[in-house]
Design a protein around this nucleic acid. Structure first.
Lengths: 229, 229
DNA sequence: CACAAAACGGACCGCACGGTCCGTTTAGTG
DNA sequence: CACTAAACGGACCGTGCGGTCCGTTTTGTG
């Protein structure tokens, strides 16, 4: 795996690999605890390395963020795909959401990162689109089973979830049940309404998001047709 | 009103008053658009004054924030109190929430401010407690009318609302209906459940919040007994 | 064991931001 | 209209952050 074509890039030294791991762990921890604007100094310190080492592994703070965020999002996508095969369409969806809320410290950082670097970083964009895609499938499946109201989209769910992740972060330390409670509220919101009742407007799509974040032009989008339910 | 005891503090000059207004307006606008970390330079520029003028009116950036936040919160409390007298307990509650969501640009800044300066600034704390109080009353009234499920508290609602305000901010520019849609979802979440169904845990109270934000000690709390319904 | 390549880490740089200071302008009064 | 107290605003300062550089230490190989 270390063989690039032409030049041979040797396997990194043992200490290098170890330090890289430590940095990723420390950063994930701190970003989860206090958001994306913890300083690189503190990250390096918690990892037990110097600042220089941090910047050799990740040329930019944003690169470090991206590494963590993409990793966490991939994890989420994989869990989602597993749940797609599990029985109980509605339960699968809520298990997915519960997992996200559990990792709420991490999740908050994800939301932050998406907001800040979404358009800039193609890796994050792709990973994000993947999560949306899987969430959309889980949602559709639950809707077809009649366990979730038919008029919500993936972004609706994501927004509710974001509310949990951001708010619960402040309370989590004192009441670990808080996100479960909020999750129950989401469940209630998504349940098919007893009395007919509709939502105004429509659920945003990935394209909507890109358009909203685009400053002026930005005609081509790498992967089109990945809309939300 | 300009007469302080002892020394006579004269009414401020006309231009001073005008500039103060302009600063407040500009800051409210910018904080709403891009959050609390817009620079003072930009605020002064949009207000059409120099940075020095800003700092004479508000010795600290936090003072400026507090002035805006307290103002907006008082407005909300007043609206809430009016609605408490209006017919239609459930509708009154949702009208209140809709108003908050409408001012979503402003509201987002409020949530941010509470998170950052809650413990530090007594004025913000008081105004915040007032909002919680009014929201709690609106909620109880709606619950007694059977229009809202009995097991939610003011903070539950606030958290859902926060989700709207923060997320919608990104989309608002492209789809102004987005917060209405989310509001409908909140409505669904708060509706009395068709099939019996309970929420895990309990709704946090103001005291919980203070405890959560307190670093270590912090025994006395200025106004006790202002719990949430 | 020796030695070169690679990784280490802290000193250093530039920038941006909150906050201060003071020479200049302006509002208001007799 | 003159004169003073107040308000004005931009030049200036200190701090903290992301990012760079380079002398020192470590790894692992012949």
């Amino acid at each position: 795996m270390w063989a690039e074509m032409g030049e041979v890039s040797r396997r990194p030294r043992a200490d290098a690999e170890r330090n890289r791991r430590r940095l990723l762990d420390a950063a994930a921890e701190l970003f989860g605890e206090r958001g994306l604007d913890v300083g690189v100094a503190e990250i390096a310190q918690r990892a037990g390395v110097g600042r220089g080492t941090l910047f050799r592994n990740f040329p930019t703070k944003e690169d470090l963020i991206a590494a963590i965020v993409v990793d966490a999002m991939s994890e989420a996508s994989m869990l989602g795909r597993e749940l797609l095969a599990a029985p109980g369409a509605g339960q699968a969806l809520f298990t997915f959401l519960e997992a996200a809320a559990d990792r709420q410290q991490r999740s908050r950082a994800l939301f932050e990162a998406v907001e800040e670097t979404f358009l800039v970083n193609p890796e994050i964009r792709a990973a994000h689109a993947d999560v949306i895609d899987v969430l959309g499938r889980l949602l559709v499946r639950a809707q077809e089973a009649g366990e979730v109201r038919a008029d919500v989209g993936a972004f609706d769910v994501l927004m509710l979830l974001k509310g949990i992740c951001e708010t619960a972060a402040a309370f989590q330390q004192m009441d670990p049940q808080i996100s479960e409670r909020q999750l129950d509220l989401i469940r209630a919101a998504l349940s098919p309404p007893a009395t007919p009742q509709t939502l105004r407007g429509r659920s945003p799509t990935l394209e909507d998001l890109e358009r909203a974040f685009a400053p002026a032009d930005q005609s081509q989008s790498a992967d089109s047709g990945r809309a939300t339910g």
